[in-house]
Design a protein around this nucleic acid. Structure first.
Lengths: 217, 217
DNA sequence: GTAGAATCTTACTCAGCAGTATGATTAGGC
DNA sequence: GCCTAATCATACTGCTGAGTAAGATTCTAC
Protein backbone atom coordinates (compact mmCIF):
# COMPACT_ATOMS: atom_id res chain seq x y z
CA UNK A 1 0.00 0.00 0.00
CA UNK A 2 1.84 3.05 -1.25
CA UNK A 3 -0.55 5.52 0.30
CA UNK A 4 -1.19 4.46 3.85
CA UNK A 5 -3.71 7.14 4.67
CA UNK A 6 -6.65 5.17 6.01
CA UNK A 7 -9.28 4.90 3.33
CA UNK A 8 -12.39 5.85 5.19
CA UNK A 9 -15.28 4.56 3.21
CA UNK A 10 -17.87 7.29 2.93
CA UNK A 11 -21.18 6.80 4.65
CA UNK A 12 -23.15 6.86 1.46
CA UNK A 13 -21.77 3.43 0.70
CA UNK A 14 -24.63 0.99 0.48
CA UNK A 15 -23.47 -2.47 1.45
CA UNK A 16 -26.45 -4.08 -0.15
CA UNK A 17 -25.01 -2.93 -3.46
CA UNK A 18 -22.58 -5.82 -3.19
CA UNK A 19 -25.52 -8.04 -4.06
CA UNK A 20 -27.52 -5.93 -6.42
CA UNK A 21 -26.58 -6.12 -10.06
CA UNK A 22 -24.19 -8.95 -9.59
CA UNK A 23 -24.82 -12.57 -10.02
CA UNK A 24 -23.76 -15.28 -7.69
CA UNK A 25 -20.30 -16.64 -7.35
CA UNK A 26 -18.70 -13.27 -7.35
CA UNK A 27 -16.90 -11.13 -4.86
CA UNK A 28 -17.00 -13.36 -1.87
CA UNK A 29 -14.68 -10.91 -0.16
CA UNK A 30 -16.65 -7.77 -0.75
CA UNK A 31 -19.89 -9.49 0.18
CA UNK A 32 -18.40 -10.64 3.44
CA UNK A 33 -17.28 -7.11 4.10
CA UNK A 34 -20.76 -5.87 3.32
CA UNK A 35 -22.19 -8.25 5.89
CA UNK A 36 -19.82 -6.94 8.53
CA UNK A 37 -20.41 -3.32 7.67
CA UNK A 38 -24.15 -3.71 7.71
CA UNK A 39 -23.99 -5.52 11.02
CA UNK A 40 -21.86 -2.72 12.46
CA UNK A 41 -24.40 -0.12 11.42
CA UNK A 42 -27.29 -2.11 12.82
CA UNK A 43 -25.48 -2.77 16.08
CA UNK A 44 -24.71 0.91 16.33
CA UNK A 45 -28.30 1.95 15.84
CA UNK A 46 -30.16 -0.66 17.80
CA UNK A 47 -27.50 -2.26 19.98
CA UNK A 48 -25.96 -5.69 19.58
CA UNK A 49 -28.60 -7.61 21.49
CA UNK A 50 -31.51 -5.75 20.02
CA UNK A 51 -30.37 -6.67 16.54
CA UNK A 52 -31.29 -10.09 15.25
CA UNK A 53 -29.45 -11.66 12.38
CA UNK A 54 -32.73 -11.56 10.53
CA UNK A 55 -32.53 -7.78 10.81
CA UNK A 56 -29.05 -7.73 9.36
CA UNK A 57 -30.10 -10.08 6.61
CA UNK A 58 -33.14 -7.96 5.81
CA UNK A 59 -30.99 -4.84 5.57
CA UNK A 60 -28.92 -6.63 2.98
CA UNK A 61 -31.90 -8.02 1.13
CA UNK A 62 -30.96 -11.61 1.94
CA UNK A 63 -31.97 -14.26 4.44
CA UNK A 64 -30.32 -15.38 7.60
CA UNK A 65 -28.56 -18.50 6.34
CA UNK A 66 -26.71 -16.28 3.90
CA UNK A 67 -25.14 -14.51 6.87
CA UNK A 68 -24.00 -17.85 8.18
CA UNK A 69 -22.46 -18.57 4.85
CA UNK A 70 -20.11 -15.65 5.29
CA UNK A 71 -19.53 -15.74 9.01
CA UNK A 72 -19.53 -18.51 11.59
CA UNK A 73 -21.95 -17.04 14.09
CA UNK A 74 -23.17 -13.84 15.65
CA UNK A 75 -20.28 -13.70 18.07
CA UNK A 76 -17.72 -13.76 15.31
CA UNK A 77 -19.65 -11.11 13.47
CA UNK A 78 -19.23 -8.86 16.47
CA UNK A 79 -15.58 -9.78 16.67
CA UNK A 80 -15.06 -8.72 13.06
CA UNK A 81 -16.67 -5.40 13.90
CA UNK A 82 -14.21 -4.96 16.72
CA UNK A 83 -11.32 -5.64 14.39
CA UNK A 84 -12.63 -3.27 11.75
CA UNK A 85 -12.85 -0.56 14.37
CA UNK A 86 -9.48 -1.18 15.97
CA UNK A 87 -7.38 -1.61 12.87
CA UNK A 88 -7.35 2.00 11.63
CA UNK A 89 -6.21 3.15 15.05
CA UNK A 90 -3.43 0.62 15.18
CA UNK A 91 -2.45 1.82 11.72
CA UNK A 92 -2.25 5.38 12.98
CA UNK A 93 0.03 4.33 15.81
CA UNK A 94 2.26 2.36 13.47
CA UNK A 95 2.63 5.38 11.25
CA UNK A 96 3.52 7.49 14.25
CA UNK A 97 6.38 5.18 15.06
CA UNK A 98 7.87 5.78 11.64
CA UNK A 99 7.62 9.53 12.00
CA UNK A 100 10.25 12.09 12.79
CA UNK A 101 9.67 14.85 15.29
CA UNK A 102 9.05 15.31 18.97
CA UNK A 103 6.73 13.11 20.96
CA UNK A 104 4.13 15.82 20.88
CA UNK A 105 4.33 16.16 17.12
CA UNK A 106 3.84 12.47 16.64
CA UNK A 107 1.06 12.25 19.20
CA UNK A 108 -0.70 15.09 17.43
CA UNK A 109 -0.92 13.05 14.26
CA UNK A 110 -2.23 10.06 16.15
CA UNK A 111 -4.91 12.15 17.80
CA UNK A 112 -5.97 13.44 14.43
CA UNK A 113 -6.23 10.01 12.83
CA UNK A 114 -7.78 8.51 15.93
CA UNK A 115 -10.53 11.10 15.98
CA UNK A 116 -11.35 10.56 12.34
CA UNK A 117 -11.40 6.80 12.80
CA UNK A 118 -13.72 6.97 15.79
CA UNK A 119 -16.06 9.26 13.89
CA UNK A 120 -16.37 6.63 11.19
CA UNK A 121 -19.14 4.08 11.16
CA UNK A 122 -16.95 1.55 12.90
CA UNK A 123 -16.42 3.83 15.86
CA UNK A 124 -19.17 2.12 17.76
CA UNK A 125 -17.35 -1.19 17.64
CA UNK A 126 -14.23 0.19 19.20
CA UNK A 127 -16.04 2.03 21.94
CA UNK A 128 -19.49 0.86 22.81
CA UNK A 129 -19.39 -2.83 21.99
CA UNK A 130 -19.00 -4.96 25.08
CA UNK A 131 -16.30 -7.60 25.45
CA UNK A 132 -18.71 -9.56 27.60
CA UNK A 133 -20.61 -10.45 24.47
CA UNK A 134 -17.57 -12.30 23.20
CA UNK A 135 -16.34 -15.61 24.48
CA UNK A 136 -13.17 -15.74 26.59
CA UNK A 137 -10.79 -16.28 23.69
CA UNK A 138 -12.09 -13.61 21.34
CA UNK A 139 -12.56 -11.25 24.24
CA UNK A 140 -8.94 -11.73 25.18
CA UNK A 141 -7.83 -10.96 21.65
CA UNK A 142 -9.76 -7.72 21.65
CA UNK A 143 -8.34 -6.79 25.00
CA UNK A 144 -4.85 -7.42 23.71
CA UNK A 145 -5.38 -5.14 20.74
CA UNK A 146 -6.86 -2.42 22.92
CA UNK A 147 -4.07 -2.52 25.42
CA UNK A 148 -1.62 -2.37 22.56
CA UNK A 149 -3.23 0.90 21.54
CA UNK A 150 -3.02 2.11 25.10
CA UNK A 151 0.66 1.24 25.28
CA UNK A 152 1.24 3.09 22.02
CA UNK A 153 -0.26 6.30 23.33
CA UNK A 154 1.56 5.95 26.60
CA UNK A 155 4.82 5.45 24.72
CA UNK A 156 4.35 8.65 22.77
CA UNK A 157 3.62 10.50 25.99
CA UNK A 158 6.81 9.16 27.53
CA UNK A 159 8.78 10.10 24.46
CA UNK A 160 7.36 13.60 24.71
CA UNK A 161 8.27 13.78 28.38
CA UNK A 162 11.80 12.74 27.53
CA UNK A 163 12.31 15.33 24.78
CA UNK A 164 10.54 18.06 26.73
CA UNK A 165 7.66 18.57 24.35
CA UNK A 166 5.10 17.16 26.77
CA UNK A 167 4.59 17.66 30.50
CA UNK A 168 2.01 15.65 32.38
CA UNK A 169 1.98 14.37 35.94
CA UNK A 170 1.04 10.79 35.10
CA UNK A 171 1.41 9.32 31.60
CA UNK A 172 -0.90 6.43 32.38
CA UNK A 173 -3.78 8.63 33.45
CA UNK A 174 -3.08 11.10 30.67
CA UNK A 175 -3.33 8.28 28.15
CA UNK A 176 -6.68 7.27 29.58
CA UNK A 177 -7.91 10.84 29.47
CA UNK A 178 -6.89 11.28 25.86
CA UNK A 179 -8.36 7.95 24.79
CA UNK A 180 -11.55 8.72 26.68
CA UNK A 181 -12.02 12.11 25.09
CA UNK A 182 -11.46 10.59 21.66
CA UNK A 183 -13.52 7.46 22.16
CA UNK A 184 -16.44 9.51 23.37
CA UNK A 185 -16.73 11.00 19.93
CA UNK A 186 -18.47 7.79 18.94
CA UNK A 187 -21.25 8.65 21.35
CA UNK A 188 -22.20 12.00 19.99
CA UNK A 189 -20.79 12.46 16.50
CA UNK A 190 -23.12 11.85 13.60
CA UNK A 191 -21.84 12.23 10.09
CA UNK A 192 -23.40 14.88 7.95
CA UNK A 193 -24.01 17.35 10.72
CA UNK A 194 -22.37 20.72 10.96
CA UNK A 195 -18.85 19.52 11.61
CA UNK A 196 -16.73 17.21 9.55
CA UNK A 197 -14.67 14.63 11.36
CA UNK A 198 -11.51 16.48 10.32
CA UNK A 199 -12.74 19.65 12.01
CA UNK A 200 -13.54 17.75 15.16
CA UNK A 201 -10.11 16.19 15.05
CA UNK A 202 -8.46 19.58 14.76
CA UNK A 203 -10.37 21.01 17.70
CA UNK A 204 -9.44 18.03 19.82
CA UNK A 205 -5.78 18.44 18.97
CA UNK A 206 -5.95 22.02 20.17
CA UNK A 207 -7.80 21.20 23.35
CA UNK A 208 -5.69 18.24 24.36
CA UNK A 209 -2.48 20.15 23.84
CA UNK A 210 -3.37 23.26 25.79
CA UNK A 211 -6.31 22.39 28.03
CA UNK A 212 -8.62 24.93 29.51
CA UNK A 213 -6.21 27.49 30.85
CA UNK A 214 -5.42 30.52 28.73
CA UNK A 215 -1.83 30.41 27.56
CA UNK A 216 0.27 32.51 29.85
CA UNK A 217 1.30 35.54 27.86
CA UNK B 1 -29.63 17.93 53.42
CA UNK B 2 -27.13 19.93 55.43
CA UNK B 3 -24.07 18.24 54.01
CA UNK B 4 -24.53 17.90 50.31
CA UNK B 5 -21.28 16.10 49.60
CA UNK B 6 -22.41 13.05 47.67
CA UNK B 7 -22.44 10.10 50.02
CA UNK B 8 -20.64 7.49 48.00
CA UNK B 9 -21.54 4.19 49.50
CA UNK B 10 -18.39 2.11 49.86
CA UNK B 11 -18.07 -0.97 47.73
CA UNK B 12 -17.98 -3.32 50.69
CA UNK B 13 -21.67 -2.66 51.13
CA UNK B 14 -23.51 -5.93 50.69
CA UNK B 15 -26.99 -5.28 49.34
CA UNK B 16 -28.14 -8.74 50.35
CA UNK B 17 -27.75 -7.57 53.94
CA UNK B 18 -31.02 -5.72 53.49
CA UNK B 19 -32.67 -9.11 53.70
CA UNK B 20 -30.52 -11.01 56.14
CA UNK B 21 -31.33 -10.61 59.78
CA UNK B 22 -34.51 -8.71 59.15
CA UNK B 23 -37.96 -10.04 58.99
CA UNK B 24 -40.51 -9.23 56.38
CA UNK B 25 -42.54 -6.09 56.20
CA UNK B 26 -39.59 -3.91 56.91
CA UNK B 27 -37.52 -1.46 54.95
CA UNK B 28 -39.31 -1.56 51.67
CA UNK B 29 -37.21 1.41 50.62
CA UNK B 30 -33.82 0.02 51.45
CA UNK B 31 -34.70 -3.33 49.93
CA UNK B 32 -35.71 -1.66 46.73
CA UNK B 33 -32.44 0.21 46.73
CA UNK B 34 -30.61 -3.05 47.29
CA UNK B 35 -32.31 -4.52 44.24
CA UNK B 36 -31.19 -1.61 42.12
CA UNK B 37 -27.66 -1.60 43.43
CA UNK B 38 -27.27 -5.32 42.92
CA UNK B 39 -28.64 -5.04 39.42
CA UNK B 40 -26.21 -2.24 38.65
CA UNK B 41 -23.27 -4.35 39.76
CA UNK B 42 -24.44 -7.34 37.79
CA UNK B 43 -25.06 -5.26 34.68
CA UNK B 44 -21.61 -3.77 35.05
CA UNK B 45 -19.91 -7.13 35.28
CA UNK B 46 -21.84 -9.16 32.75
CA UNK B 47 -23.67 -6.58 30.69
CA UNK B 48 -27.35 -5.80 30.74
CA UNK B 49 -28.45 -8.45 28.29
CA UNK B 50 -26.22 -11.13 29.68
CA UNK B 51 -27.74 -10.68 33.10
CA UNK B 52 -31.03 -12.42 33.78
CA UNK B 53 -33.29 -11.34 36.56
CA UNK B 54 -32.73 -14.76 38.03
CA UNK B 55 -29.08 -13.80 38.32
CA UNK B 56 -29.94 -10.61 40.16
CA UNK B 57 -32.33 -12.47 42.39
CA UNK B 58 -29.74 -15.13 43.16
CA UNK B 59 -27.20 -12.47 44.09
CA UNK B 60 -29.70 -11.18 46.61
CA UNK B 61 -30.65 -14.60 47.88
CA UNK B 62 -34.22 -14.27 46.64
CA UNK B 63 -36.27 -15.43 43.68
CA UNK B 64 -37.27 -13.60 40.56
CA UNK B 65 -40.84 -12.62 41.47
CA UNK B 66 -39.41 -10.76 44.44
CA UNK B 67 -37.64 -8.48 42.02
CA UNK B 68 -40.96 -7.81 40.35
CA UNK B 69 -42.39 -6.92 43.68
CA UNK B 70 -40.01 -4.01 43.96
CA UNK B 71 -39.75 -2.94 40.36
CA UNK B 72 -42.11 -3.11 37.42
CA UNK B 73 -39.87 -4.83 34.92
CA UNK B 74 -36.32 -5.16 33.72
CA UNK B 75 -36.48 -1.99 31.70
CA UNK B 76 -37.42 0.10 34.69
CA UNK B 77 -34.66 -1.53 36.67
CA UNK B 78 -32.20 -0.28 34.10
CA UNK B 79 -33.83 3.13 34.19
CA UNK B 80 -33.34 3.33 37.95
CA UNK B 81 -29.68 2.52 37.43
CA UNK B 82 -29.42 5.39 34.99
CA UNK B 83 -30.95 7.75 37.51
CA UNK B 84 -28.69 6.55 40.30
CA UNK B 85 -25.69 7.20 38.09
CA UNK B 86 -26.80 10.58 36.81
CA UNK B 87 -28.00 12.12 40.04
CA UNK B 88 -24.64 12.65 41.76
CA UNK B 89 -23.34 14.44 38.69
CA UNK B 90 -26.33 16.70 38.53
CA UNK B 91 -25.77 17.40 42.20
CA UNK B 92 -22.21 18.44 41.48
CA UNK B 93 -23.37 20.87 38.82
CA UNK B 94 -26.00 22.35 41.08
CA UNK B 95 -23.38 22.94 43.75
CA UNK B 96 -21.15 24.63 41.20
CA UNK B 97 -23.89 27.08 40.39
CA UNK B 98 -23.99 28.18 44.01
CA UNK B 99 -20.25 28.67 44.13
CA UNK B 100 -18.21 31.81 44.04
CA UNK B 101 -15.13 32.12 41.89
CA UNK B 102 -14.13 32.10 38.27
CA UNK B 103 -15.58 29.71 35.75
CA UNK B 104 -12.42 27.69 35.88
CA UNK B 105 -12.56 27.41 39.66
CA UNK B 106 -16.12 26.18 39.55
CA UNK B 107 -15.47 23.80 36.69
CA UNK B 108 -12.56 22.35 38.62
CA UNK B 109 -14.86 21.33 41.44
CA UNK B 110 -17.30 19.77 39.02
CA UNK B 111 -14.54 17.78 37.37
CA UNK B 112 -13.45 16.50 40.75
CA UNK B 113 -16.92 15.40 41.84
CA UNK B 114 -17.72 14.05 38.40
CA UNK B 115 -14.64 11.86 38.38
CA UNK B 116 -15.41 10.46 41.81
CA UNK B 117 -19.01 9.77 40.81
CA UNK B 118 -18.03 7.96 37.64
CA UNK B 119 -15.54 5.84 39.56
CA UNK B 120 -18.36 4.67 41.83
CA UNK B 121 -20.30 1.50 41.20
CA UNK B 122 -23.00 3.41 39.36
CA UNK B 123 -20.53 4.76 36.86
CA UNK B 124 -21.40 2.03 34.42
CA UNK B 125 -25.01 3.14 34.27
CA UNK B 126 -24.13 6.65 33.28
CA UNK B 127 -21.65 5.61 30.64
CA UNK B 128 -21.98 2.17 29.22
CA UNK B 129 -25.67 1.46 29.51
CA UNK B 130 -27.48 1.88 26.22
CA UNK B 131 -30.54 4.05 25.77
CA UNK B 132 -31.70 1.63 23.12
CA UNK B 133 -32.53 -0.81 25.86
CA UNK B 134 -35.10 1.63 27.18
CA UNK B 135 -38.41 2.38 25.58
CA UNK B 136 -38.95 5.74 23.86
CA UNK B 137 -40.31 7.54 26.91
CA UNK B 138 -37.73 6.45 29.45
CA UNK B 139 -34.99 6.84 26.88
CA UNK B 140 -36.08 10.42 26.30
CA UNK B 141 -35.98 11.14 30.02
CA UNK B 142 -32.43 9.87 30.26
CA UNK B 143 -31.42 11.90 27.27
CA UNK B 144 -32.89 14.99 28.84
CA UNK B 145 -30.91 14.50 32.01
CA UNK B 146 -27.73 13.87 30.09
CA UNK B 147 -28.10 16.92 27.93
CA UNK B 148 -28.77 18.92 31.05
CA UNK B 149 -25.39 17.83 32.33
CA UNK B 150 -23.84 18.76 29.02
CA UNK B 151 -25.40 22.20 29.14
CA UNK B 152 -24.10 22.66 32.66
CA UNK B 153 -20.52 21.98 31.66
CA UNK B 154 -20.86 24.15 28.61
CA UNK B 155 -22.23 26.94 30.75
CA UNK B 156 -19.24 26.81 33.06
CA UNK B 157 -16.92 26.91 30.08
CA UNK B 158 -18.68 29.97 28.73
CA UNK B 159 -18.51 31.64 32.12
CA UNK B 160 -14.81 30.95 32.19
CA UNK B 161 -14.38 32.37 28.72
CA UNK B 162 -16.20 35.50 29.81
CA UNK B 163 -14.12 36.09 32.92
CA UNK B 164 -10.87 35.16 31.19
CA UNK B 165 -10.06 32.11 33.27
CA UNK B 166 -10.64 29.69 30.39
CA UNK B 167 -9.63 29.80 26.74
CA UNK B 168 -10.86 27.17 24.31
CA UNK B 169 -11.69 27.40 20.63
CA UNK B 170 -15.08 25.71 20.86
CA UNK B 171 -16.98 25.31 24.12
CA UNK B 172 -19.24 22.64 22.69
CA UNK B 173 -16.40 20.39 21.62
CA UNK B 174 -14.45 21.14 24.79
CA UNK B 175 -17.44 20.04 26.84
CA UNK B 176 -17.58 16.79 24.90
CA UNK B 177 -13.87 16.23 25.36
CA UNK B 178 -14.06 16.80 29.11
CA UNK B 179 -17.13 14.61 29.53
CA UNK B 180 -15.53 11.92 27.42
CA UNK B 181 -12.32 11.85 29.38
CA UNK B 182 -14.28 11.65 32.61
CA UNK B 183 -16.85 9.13 31.45
CA UNK B 184 -14.15 6.84 30.21
CA UNK B 185 -13.03 6.35 33.78
CA UNK B 186 -15.92 3.93 34.12
CA UNK B 187 -14.25 1.72 31.54
CA UNK B 188 -10.95 1.22 33.24
CA UNK B 189 -11.21 2.18 36.90
CA UNK B 190 -11.64 -0.61 39.41
CA UNK B 191 -11.93 0.25 43.05
CA UNK B 192 -9.29 -1.08 45.36
CA UNK B 193 -6.43 -0.84 42.92
CA UNK B 194 -3.45 1.42 43.32
CA UNK B 195 -5.27 4.71 42.90
CA UNK B 196 -8.18 6.07 44.86
CA UNK B 197 -10.91 7.85 42.95
CA UNK B 198 -9.85 11.11 44.60
CA UNK B 199 -6.32 10.73 43.24
CA UNK B 200 -7.65 10.04 39.78
CA UNK B 201 -9.88 13.09 40.06
CA UNK B 202 -6.93 15.27 41.00
CA UNK B 203 -4.83 14.06 38.09
CA UNK B 204 -7.69 14.73 35.69
CA UNK B 205 -8.11 18.24 36.99
CA UNK B 206 -4.47 18.90 36.29
CA UNK B 207 -4.52 17.39 32.84
CA UNK B 208 -7.71 19.04 31.69
CA UNK B 209 -6.55 22.44 32.83
CA UNK B 210 -3.13 22.42 31.24
CA UNK B 211 -3.14 19.72 28.60
CA UNK B 212 -0.04 18.12 27.22
CA UNK B 213 2.11 21.12 26.51
CA UNK B 214 4.67 22.17 29.09
CA UNK B 215 3.69 25.48 30.65
CA UNK B 216 5.56 28.23 28.94
CA UNK B 217 8.09 29.50 31.44
C1' DG C 1 -56.20 -14.14 68.17
C1' DT C 2 -57.78 -13.01 63.87
C1' DA C 3 -58.53 -10.22 59.34
C1' DG C 4 -56.28 -8.35 55.81
C1' DA C 5 -52.41 -6.45 53.73
C1' DA C 6 -47.58 -7.06 52.63
C1' DT C 7 -44.03 -10.12 51.21
C1' DC C 8 -42.18 -13.91 48.86
C1' DT C 9 -42.09 -18.73 46.39
C1' DT C 10 -43.17 -22.59 43.29
C1' DA C 11 -44.28 -23.62 38.92
C1' DC C 12 -45.61 -22.35 35.09
C1' DT C 13 -46.41 -19.69 29.92
C1' DC C 14 -44.80 -17.78 25.85
C1' DA C 15 -42.10 -15.20 22.45
C1' DG C 16 -37.93 -14.21 20.26
C1' DC C 17 -34.05 -15.62 18.18
C1' DA C 18 -29.61 -18.23 17.34
C1' DG C 19 -28.46 -21.84 14.79
C1' DT C 20 -29.36 -25.91 11.34
C1' DA C 21 -31.06 -29.52 8.05
C1' DT C 22 -32.25 -29.89 3.59
C1' DG C 23 -32.62 -28.79 -0.74
C1' DA C 24 -32.94 -25.40 -4.76
C1' DT C 25 -30.37 -22.55 -8.01
C1' DT C 26 -26.53 -20.81 -10.54
C1' DA C 27 -21.88 -20.27 -12.34
C1' DG C 28 -17.93 -21.86 -14.55
C1' DG C 29 -14.64 -25.76 -16.14
C1' DC C 30 -14.42 -29.23 -19.42
C1' DG D 1 -24.36 -29.45 -22.60
C1' DC D 2 -23.09 -31.73 -18.21
C1' DC D 3 -20.74 -31.99 -13.49
C1' DT D 4 -19.32 -29.99 -9.35
C1' DA D 5 -18.75 -26.54 -6.13
C1' DA D 6 -20.39 -22.22 -4.62
C1' DT D 7 -24.28 -19.61 -3.17
C1' DC D 8 -28.66 -18.88 -1.17
C1' DA D 9 -33.74 -19.92 0.51
C1' DT D 10 -37.50 -22.53 2.99
C1' DA D 11 -38.71 -24.38 6.96
C1' DC D 12 -37.65 -26.04 10.77
C1' DT D 13 -35.49 -27.03 16.24
C1' DG D 14 -34.44 -25.81 20.79
C1' DC D 15 -33.20 -22.92 24.41
C1' DT D 16 -33.10 -18.95 27.17
C1' DG D 17 -35.22 -15.72 29.80
C1' DA D 18 -38.96 -12.16 30.64
C1' DG D 19 -43.06 -12.03 32.74
C1' DT D 20 -47.21 -14.16 35.48
C1' DA D 21 -50.76 -16.97 38.03
C1' DA D 22 -51.77 -18.81 42.20
C1' DG D 23 -50.89 -19.62 46.53
C1' DA D 24 -48.03 -19.89 50.97
C1' DT D 25 -46.27 -17.30 54.79
C1' DT D 26 -45.69 -13.52 57.97
C1' DC D 27 -46.49 -9.15 59.94
C1' DT D 28 -49.46 -5.44 62.05
C1' DA D 29 -53.61 -3.41 63.66
C1' DC D 30 -57.50 -3.85 66.22
Amino acid sequence: MPDSIPTLTPIEVDPAAAWRGRRRRQDHGSKREAVIRTAARAFDERGYHNTSLDDVAAALGVTKPTIYYYVANKEQLLFECFLAGLEPIRDALRRAEQMQGTGRDRLREVVRDYAVAIASEYGWCMVRAEHQDLGPDLSAQVRTLKSEIDRGIRGLLQAGMADGSIAVTDTKLAAFAIAGALNWIAHWYRAGRTLSSAEVAEAFVQFLEHGLAPRSA
